[in-house]
Amino acid sequence: KKIKIDLKKGPEGLGFTVVTRDSSIHGPGPIFVKNILPKGAAIKDGRLQSGDRILEVNGRDVTGRTQEELVAMLRSTKQGETASLVIAR
């Protein structure tokens, strides 16, 4: 099931960490939400869960991207702006 979640970045950030699983010589594996932090946009919104697979960030497919690339995409969202995620659960 795909779910679109918009998180408005506040002073505590987006409020979640990510982890890559099953990376191989063929490229990075899928990226999942690792933890929801006690402060930040994710816990206020309440929909994002540990174990959700991140498919898109701000309309860009993240398949084949590294964890570092995904984190850079999320960090490029400025405070007060919205990060738009599509996740699979």
Rank of each mutant, 00 (worst) to 15 (best):
S76C: 10
S24W: 03
V18Q: 02
R60G: 09
I87P: 15
S50P: 12
S24P: 10
R47T: 12
G15H: 00
L48Q: 01
L55H: 06
D52R: 00
R21I: 06
A88N: 15
V33W: 00
V71S: 12
K39I: 08
L85D: 03
T17L: 12
G15W: 00
V71M: 14
G80L: 05
R75W: 04
E81H: 12
D52N: 01
T77E: 11
N35L: 10
G27T: 12
T82N: 15
D52Q: 01
G10Q: 10
D45V: 01
I54S: 00
G46M: 04
G64D: 11
S23R: 08
V86Q: 09
T63Y: 07
Q49S: 14
K44F: 09
K9N: 15
A42V: 02
E12C: 00
I25N: 11
T17W: 02
G15P: 00
T77G: 10
L7K: 05
R75S: 05
P38A: 13
T17E: 11
G29P: 06
L7E: 01
L37P: 02
P28I: 12
S50Q: 10
G13N: 04
K9A: 14
R89H: 06
G46D: 04
R21N: 10
I5D: 00
K8I: 08
P28S: 10
G13L: 02
G10K: 07
G29D: 12
I43A: 05
V33A: 03
K44Q: 06
D45C: 09
V71C: 10
M73Q: 06
V33P: 01
A41F: 03
K44C: 13
R89V: 00
Q67I: 04
A41K: 03
V18A: 07
R47E: 10
A83I: 07
P38T: 15
L7Y: 00
G29M: 09
Q49L: 09
L85T: 03
G59W: 02
K44H: 15
T20C: 08
K2V: 03
K4P: 08
E69D: 12
T63I: 11
D6R: 08
F32D: 10
L85I: 08
N58F: 05
S84F: 11
G40N: 02
E81P: 03
V18M: 15
I5S: 00
V71Y: 15
A72E: 13
I36H: 01
F32W: 07
I31E: 01
L37R: 02
Q79A: 06
L74K: 03
Q67C: 03
G40I: 02
I87C: 11
A72L: 06
D6G: 12
R89L: 00
S84H: 14
A72M: 08
E12D: 10
A88T: 13
M73G: 06
T17H: 05
H26E: 15
K44P: 02
